[in-house]
Nucleic acid binder design. Structure first.
Lengths: 210, 210
DNA sequence: GTCTATAACGTGATAGAC
DNA sequence: GTCTATCACGTTATAGAC
């Protein structure tokens, strides 16, 4: 009963065009505010084709959400579980990798958080964040450093919230930051690029705080 | 042409009931996903009354948005402009006050950021965040400390992003944090309460980082 | 002021020609 | 596979009785 789809080469084919358009519009406006007509227009195709290829708005959304979430998590997993790098090196790589990603796709965090509020189960079903993070090499190295007395004995959850908060929050609050700092996009991105070097320094300083 | 409204005493009156219901539902689901029927049901009133009192969903929303934004900003302005407290004291009070607020209204940041993305002008028109923050006593004290060489010479915008990121981000990412930490609401709130003391310590440590 | 009934409209989805 | 035309439905908003 499930429709077979022959993968073609270029993303010039209609199915890929629709998916790309859907990703763009969903990421920008969220599920509820997006009209299928917006997606069709963005894709430069006819509205009927959307349903021909994906059956419904909801099914299309689920595909996009799935891909977005797993992409977002995977981009971190590689670094978290690199057994060849130290804790300190990971503290440098995580903000740097995420900021590179978010400069390219600044709407990603707000999209994910908004849609997760609508349906928190998505996260658990689609990715296994808990295991991915809690059982990572990163977490293990952190706990070991705490035990060895090398860093302050702070709950790993706090540490993760701090590292990700410093990295991701500016992109979520970007309209506010643009307003406060009277910034254009280029200036904002420059600030974010600065943070790639600064967040690791700040984080290390925090780890020494009592 | 503008409708006059006689303010009654209790929030038992219909207009207040609708507004309170609207605030609850809009904060939880955002503008696009909210149906006027949801609001009417939450308020325990007839759907037609909503339009009788507020003309349209959009007008009602704008009132809620206006109140929410100015409340959110005002809650910070008092502390930011308290001329009787030091920079250090403000660094302690801001996270503390915000976390108290956000434990009561955890959906606030995500609501504000989501709706601001839809219409960034709201922020500029409704509140004057730029002046409120940039010309605050807090900002002035920060700059003075930098000049005096007491703290690292870091852009005030970075500092604000850090302080607010550490404070607000966990509430925005709360579905993710609940999943990663396997937390119930009470445990989450306990973590947040811990942060009231820790964020100032961390922030001060960051200020010494080179 | 509050209700019921209904109009007016927007949006998701499909039928059917090509 | 792709299009035009249209249906079916949900939602906002209003008319009109009480």
């Amino acid at each position: 009963m499930a429709a077979k789809k022959i993968k073609q080469n270029l993303d010039t084919n209609t199915e890929a065009k629709i998916k790309n358009a859907a990703r763009t519009v969903f990421h920008k406006k969220g599920f509820a505010a997006t009209r299928t007509r917006d997606i069709a227009e963005e894709a430069g195709i006819n509205l009927a084709l959307l349903n021909y290829y994906f059956r419904s708005k909801e099914k299309l959304f689920n595909i996009i959400m799935q891909e977005t979430l797993s992409g977002f998590v995977k981009s971190i997993v590689v670094i978290f579980n690199d057994e060849t790098t130290t804790l300190e090196k990971k503290i440098e790589r995580i903000p740097s990798a995420y900021i590179d990603l978010l400069i390219l796709e600044p709407q990603l965090p707000l999209f994910i958080m908004s849609e997760l509020r609508r349906n928190p189960d998505h996260l658990l079903k689609m990715t296994n964040v808990k295991n991915v993070i809690v059982n990572s090499a990163f977490a293990r190295q952190y706990q070991q450093s705490v035990k060895a007395g090398k860093i302050a004995p702070v709950n790993f959850l706090h540490f993760i919230m701090n590292l990700l908060g410093l990295t991701i929050f500016p992109f979520i609050a970007s309209p506010m930051i643009h307003a406060v700092g009277d910034l254009k996009e280029a200036q904002f991105n420059k600030l974010m690029t600065e943070r790639k070097k600064m967040i690791p320094q700040w984080t290390k300083a925090m780890l020494k705080a009592k």
